[in-house]
Simulated scan of single mutants.
Amino acid sequence: MPPYSPPDTILFDGVCNLCNGFVQFVIRHDAAGRFRFAALQSEAGRALLAAHGLAPTSLATDPDSVLLLSGGQLYSHSDAVLRIARGLGGIWQVAALARVLPRVWRDAAYRFVARHRYRWFGREESCWLPTPELKARFL
């Protein structure tokens, strides 16, 4: 029997409409159930950040809206998004080809969108709550 490998965890800004839309996109396309989720504002999200040496308050100055915890390592910016796309499989793996671009370019584009996400897509007053069927995939 292969060793247990915990699911990859996507940490996201729970009040960001773009981030919530991204999480719902991943849920729709993650047929294998590879990913689980935690809002950055949740107790579980804050605990995961602390376990990796990040303070939740640091996110106010660095607009990381999506982080990926995979294999004990935390990925941010474009690396997180591209690893998630690759993990979805199928046609979404094509997005991972963007890794051929210099990371500084990819991360600049990521940061630009992240900086403007509330203005362009809006924000909620509270975190999105999963349906009872999806609750098991959220920390």
Rank of each mutant, 00 (worst) to 15 (best):
D64S: 15
R137A: 10
I27L: 14
I84Y: 14
G53W: 10
G71K: 04
D8Y: 09
S5R: 15
D13V: 03
D30I: 01
G71W: 04
A31W: 12
N20W: 00
D13A: 03
R103M: 12
L97Y: 08
Y4Q: 09
V94A: 13
V23C: 01
I91M: 14
R117F: 11
C127R: 08
P6R: 01
V26H: 09
H52T: 02
F112Q: 12
A80S: 12
R86S: 12
F138G: 00
G53M: 06
A114D: 09
L139G: 13
E43D: 08
H77T: 06
F35A: 06
A32F: 02
A96S: 15
N20S: 05
F112E: 12
K135R: 13
D107W: 05
V15K: 04
L48C: 04
L101R: 09
D107K: 14
T57F: 11
I27K: 02
C16H: 08
G45Q: 00
A60V: 13
L129G: 11
N20E: 07
A96W: 15
A39F: 06
Q93H: 10
A85N: 10
D30E: 01
R115A: 14
P56S: 07
A44C: 10
H52I: 09
A114G: 06
T61E: 15
I27S: 04
V94K: 08
D64N: 14
E133F: 01
T61M: 15
Y118D: 10
D8Q: 10
A85K: 02
Y110R: 11
F25S: 07
A32K: 04
G90M: 11
H116P: 10
N17I: 00
A96M: 12
P56K: 13
R111T: 13
F138H: 04
G90V: 11
A96F: 15
L49S: 06
P102A: 09
A109M: 14
C127L: 06
W92A: 06
G87V: 03
A55P: 04
R34N: 05
R137T: 02
V113N: 07
W120K: 04
L88F: 08
P63A: 11
P3V: 12
E133W: 00
H77F: 11
R36T: 05
A60F: 12
R106G: 14
G122N: 12
C19I: 02
V100A: 12
G87K: 04
R103E: 15
R46M: 09
L54S: 05
Q41E: 08
L18K: 01
A47V: 02
D8A: 10
R115E: 11
A80Y: 06
S126A: 13
V113H: 11
A98G: 07
L11C: 03
L88G: 01
E43P: 09
F22S: 07
